[in-house]
Simulated assay, not measured.
Amino acid sequence: MNRRHTVTDSPYGPLTLVATDAGLRGLYMTDQRHRPPEETFGDPDPRPFTEAIRQLGAYFAGELTAFQLPLDLTGTPFQRRVWELLLTIPYGETRTYGELAALLGNPHASRAVGLANGRNPVGIVVPCHRVIGTGGGLTGYGGGLDRKRRLLAFESGAGEADTLFAADFGRPR
């Protein structure tokens, strides 16, 4: 499978985008847990990422609340079901791991949901940052709890003015 990648700046640090011919395969932050080795990202080539970068810029400008990008997610059937549920969490809202487990038909699977959530290869676009612990606590995030806190604050309207960044967003590195 032909893979390509590019790195672009964001208000949350550099983002590495990885794609196949089928769609976006990865969106990785610096120091992200479960980040694959760079040699698996394919050749550097910013051309396949024009639309993804445009939509990310609109998201960071507060103009886009749901991404419309072809995705090429690989994972176990359970992980894929969890990631599909993440896509249903509305912008600015959160769900708990337990709520997602119940929606999957197994209310005792919150830990498994958390593990699948942590393996999400396309953060931000597949909004794993919108999942919180019971009682509203911020638990685990592959990109770090500070980034999770900032993303949730941004989506709730209480975050920093990331819109100032949007004009410069998308410059490949």
Rank of each mutant, 00 (worst) to 15 (best):
L87Q: 14
P107D: 07
P127Q: 13
V113H: 02
H129R: 09
L152R: 01
V126N: 13
L103C: 08
L151K: 04
L138C: 12
R111G: 02
G135E: 13
G159P: 08
R130D: 12
R80L: 15
F78A: 15
T94A: 09
A112V: 00
A109E: 06
G114I: 03
R111W: 10
T88L: 13
E155G: 04
G140H: 14
T94C: 12
A101I: 01
V122P: 03
A116T: 00
G75K: 07
W83T: 02
G75L: 05
T76R: 11
G98T: 05
E93M: 13
V131M: 05
H108N: 10
G157N: 08
L85C: 11
A158M: 04
G142I: 06
L103F: 04
G114W: 04
T139Y: 14
P127G: 11
Y97F: 15
K148V: 00
L87G: 14
G157D: 09
E93F: 06
G136L: 07
E84S: 13
R119A: 14
G118H: 05
K148W: 02
L152I: 06
V82P: 00
V113N: 01
S156G: 10
L152C: 05
G123L: 14
L115Y: 05
G157W: 10
N106F: 01
D146N: 13
G123A: 15
S110Q: 07
E84D: 14
T94F: 06
I124D: 08
L115R: 06
P77C: 13
T96D: 09
G114Q: 03
A158I: 02
R119P: 00
E99H: 01
G123I: 13
I132K: 04
V125A: 12
G98W: 02
A158P: 01
L87F: 05
G143N: 03
G92Y: 10
A112S: 01
V82M: 06
V82I: 07
T76S: 15
E93V: 07
T96M: 02
A116K: 00
H129A: 12
E99D: 05
L85S: 08
V125L: 10
G133Q: 06
L104K: 07
L104F: 04
R130M: 12
V126L: 13
V82A: 04
C128V: 03
G135P: 06
A158T: 07
G123W: 12
G114R: 02
K148Q: 15
R95T: 09
P90Q: 12
I89D: 08
V125H: 09
G133N: 01
N120P: 01
T76F: 09
I132F: 04
G75R: 11
Y97A: 06
N106T: 02
L145R: 15
P127M: 09
A158D: 09
P121M: 00
N117D: 07
L103N: 08
G92R: 11
G143P: 04
F78I: 11
P90R: 10
S110D: 11
T88Y: 03
P90G: 08
R119E: 12
R147K: 15
R81F: 09
R149T: 03
G142A: 14
P121H: 00
A109S: 10
R119G: 04
E99I: 01
L152M: 04
A101T: 03
G136I: 10
G123E: 14
G105S: 05
E84V: 05
L152H: 04
G144R: 08
L138H: 13
L86Q: 07
K148H: 02
